[in-house]
Write a protein that binds this DNA or RNA. Structure first.
Lengths: 327, 327
DNA sequence: ACAGATATGCTCATTTTGAGTATAAGTGAG
DNA sequence: CTCACTTATACTCAAAATGAGCATATCTGT
């Protein structure tokens, strides 16, 4: 029997934000199939570096010229792909995060820009704690915790739930996106985990197949996990590196900048303090120009101050501890 | 001609800290050869997950039971390995960071624990700005910058040097470990870059082969780059997650904790403020026990307060902006 | 008992946050 | 043209966090 070998694929989470909505580029080969992330194989002989390869086929297939690109994570579990042929090669995916300045018409007709929060609805706290957390996730995770076989397991699960979702007194931490997804997956609350369990003869006794899964659009393979990883990374990164500006045009109003940060962080911010923060940190500088037609006082256009990189060691929008101001 | 295929290897940067020195486990097959990181192949059929595989062979070969493990980065450039056979498979390395509580006698006789700063001497600022930065790196990078072919390139290089090494007024940022290494590599100041350039017919006109490279022990392939990545990750992570405690025994004095953080961050801290920070953050709690024989007043033993995870969203030792107190 | 070494406690000025209030400068309806 | 409404921007103020020291406690060794 011949060794099936290894294949390496590259996945991209391409993120763009239009006004208030963070979007990623998804492929949907046909209405019957699940969304997937853009994916391309690595040619071991031809392609010189992983990143260049990724940029190349994204340009080819979607017409997008990626700006900022960073490696996210490499997913290599043997049973990642429930549909993989038994004798086929093992597939490793190296996932990348890319930031795009706008979301153009999406090249291929199977490619669509989709709101990230369609996939992870429980991550958007901009209008306060989402109902789904209170009403569905909370109780279901409680069931799951209490259905533990041992007391050790039970208290371990309890702690994880509490930390990840800020259940008891503990507060909600925006960066724990992946922890939350993995918890929901383990508890069998997302479609992917049902699907994976029905494969390879694995069954799960504690799981009641009749309880519906959570709202939130599923994806093929482990792609939703990859999206969660990407969101976690972005949320973490904006605090200490000025990556947000990769998602904005060169001139923007402070409100637009704020809405962008809010869209990514999934949280509302206090306007006056945000302005103060961003100005005092030297992240932006005013151009003399003003935006017309705001429906109120005109807003000044600002630009990113590149010099800030030289001056401050940590140049991000340092999100406040508490979220605020539902204005 | 048959396709050479892809092989995947796993690399581990295993970090332990003995009192004041951060150490990693290196392999040195023979005195003539360069140090390498512990490395093991992935069996595409047998191994279920990458992380378990890594833990497995580390246990096998070094007897170490790894505690905390996290994926670092995947290195996949085609020409990573200058010694690779022309027709051989393309090798991807998935690098992991592991934290070990102590540094036991190092199992195999080819395995040695080595001070991280032997590899990256310019990263240790605990006794102030290292001479090597002032006297060697500074001038050499200046030469390199000024030797640029175009003005654009020149100012680009200038900016990068300034930011990475805190050259002009800008201050030194502990987390930019990788940026610094890559800069030195590009400028031809580390042995690895000389070696790589002499391969595959690549030559580099601007490089004077007579200028000696910097002090700092070289490694095989791109392993030193991996070490730099690991150090950068640890330095970043200790700020917001309580990973330091993975490197300590269950009971420790505050000074020991401080020395550990200093060893990793490469910077001295103000003792009283460090204590205040760590106590007020609820990271530790006193056991009633005291350390004897300190040569002064006995120090209380503390333990990590696990509950902190539940309470605070960001539970790290939040390094101060300025370093201080050469006590 | 005293010098020397650590550990630990406390103070104080400064800076950074969180949360508001106040004012400026547009728009559209009547 | 004035008024209600909107959005932008400026300031204020208390609370918390941070950077730097000084002071005191408790050991060891002479």
């Amino acid at each position: 029997m011949k060794a099936p070998g290894i294949a390496v694929g590259l996945n991209a989470v391409i993120l763009a934000v239009t006004r208030e909505t963070p979007k990623i580029l998804s492929l949907r080969p046909s209405p019957q199939e699940l969304d997937t992330l853009p994916f391309g194989p690595l040619d071991p002989e031809g392609d010189r570096t992983l990143e260049l390869t990724l940029r190349g086929w994204v340009r080819e297939r979607t017409g997008l010229d990626l700006g900022y690109v960073e490696q996210l994570y490499t997913f290599g579990d043997r049973d990642r792909d429930p549909r993989a042929r038994a004798g086929g090669p093992r597939v490793l995916s190296v996932a990348y995060l890319a930031l795009a300045r706008q979301a153009p018409p999406s090249g291929a007709e199977t490619a669509v820009w989709r709101d990230v929060y369609q996939y992870l609805p429980w991550e958007d706290w901009r209008s306060g704690r989402p109902e789904i957390v209170e009403e569905v996730i909370g109780p279901r995770l409680k069931e799951w915790t209490e259905g533990s076989e041992t007391t050790t397991l039970r208290s371990e699960r309890g702690l994880r739930v509490e930390i990840a979702f800020g259940m008891a007194g503990s507060d909600w931490d925006g960066y724990r996106v992946l922890e939350r997804y993995e918890l929901l997956y383990e508890a069998g609350l997302v479609e992917e985990s049902r699907r994976d369990r029905n494969h390879a003869g694995r069954t799960q006794a504690t799981l009641d197949p009749k309880t519906p899964t959570l709202p939130g659009r599923p994806m093929a393979m482990d792609h939703r996990r990859i999206v969660a990883t990407a969101l976690a990374r972005v949320r973490g990164k904006i605090r200490y590196r000025p990556v947000v500006f990769e998602l904005l045009p060169s001139r923007f109003t402070l409100l637009r900048l704020q809405r962008l940060v809010e869209a990514l962080a999934g949280v509302r911010l206090h306007k006056q303090n945000f302005r103060r923060l961003v100005e005092r940190a030297g992240l932006v500088e005013g151009t003399g120009a003003y935006e017309e037609k705001t429906g109120g006082r005109p807003a000044e256009f600002f630009r990113f101050r590149r010099e800030v990189l030289r001056e401050r060691r940590t140049a991000g929008v340092g999100l406040p501890t508490r979220s605020v101001d539902p204005s």
